[in-house]
Amino acid sequence: MAISKHALTGVPLNEITVKRKQLTRQEAVTVHIMAHEGHSYTDIVQQLGTNANRVGEVRRGEVHPDSAKIALNLLLAKRKGFGGARTNKRQSGHSRT
């Protein structure tokens, strides 16, 4: 991704690759997860290629109100799986003697 410069001022400009006028449910879930991960409001807006109003609607629950719960469930599932699989001390086929 090359950084272009403004034709008159020479100021470096970021390339805009994604523009969203509205957010899908999955994108709304991503908003909540990114906020939980500590991303700034501005970074969430820019990385999703939308404007602050759309992200605000999601965060306030005005749009895709179920997205916060979905995000929480995903985060909890990730946390449970993070420690690795637990092994059962008693494995079938092995007897104590």
Rank of each mutant, 00 (worst) to 15 (best):
A2E: 13
S4Q: 10
S4H: 08
S4K: 09
K5C: 00
H6M: 07
L8W: 07
L8V: 03
L8N: 05
T9Q: 09
G10S: 07
G10V: 13
G10N: 06
V11L: 15
P12T: 04
L13R: 08
L13P: 04
N14T: 05
N14R: 13
N14A: 14
I16S: 10
T17L: 15
T17V: 11
V18Y: 03
V18K: 15
K19Y: 14
K19F: 14
K19G: 10
K21A: 12
Q22D: 11
L23D: 13
R25C: 11
R25K: 15
Q26A: 14
Q26C: 07
E27K: 03
E27D: 09
E27F: 04
E27T: 05
E27S: 03
A28T: 00
T30G: 06
T30E: 14
T30I: 06
H32G: 01
H32A: 03
I33N: 01
I33P: 04
A35P: 03
H36P: 00
E37L: 12
E37N: 03
G38V: 15
H39S: 07
H39N: 09
S40Y: 01
S40P: 04
Y41W: 08
Y41Q: 12
T42H: 05
T42I: 10
D43R: 02
I44E: 05
V45P: 01
V45W: 02
Q47N: 10
Q47L: 13
T50Y: 05
N53P: 01
R54W: 05
V55K: 07
R59H: 04
R59D: 00
R59F: 11
R60V: 08
G61I: 12
E62C: 01
V63Q: 14
H64M: 12
D66M: 06
D66I: 15
D66R: 15
S67E: 10
A68D: 12
A68Q: 13
K69G: 01
K69I: 15
A71W: 01
L72M: 04
L74S: 03
A77Q: 03
A77M: 01
A77L: 03
K78P: 00
R79C: 11
K80C: 02
G81E: 11
F82V: 01
A85E: 00
A85V: 02
R86Q: 07
R86N: 11
N88R: 13
N88W: 09
N88T: 12
K89F: 08
R90C: 10
Q91K: 08
S92A: 06
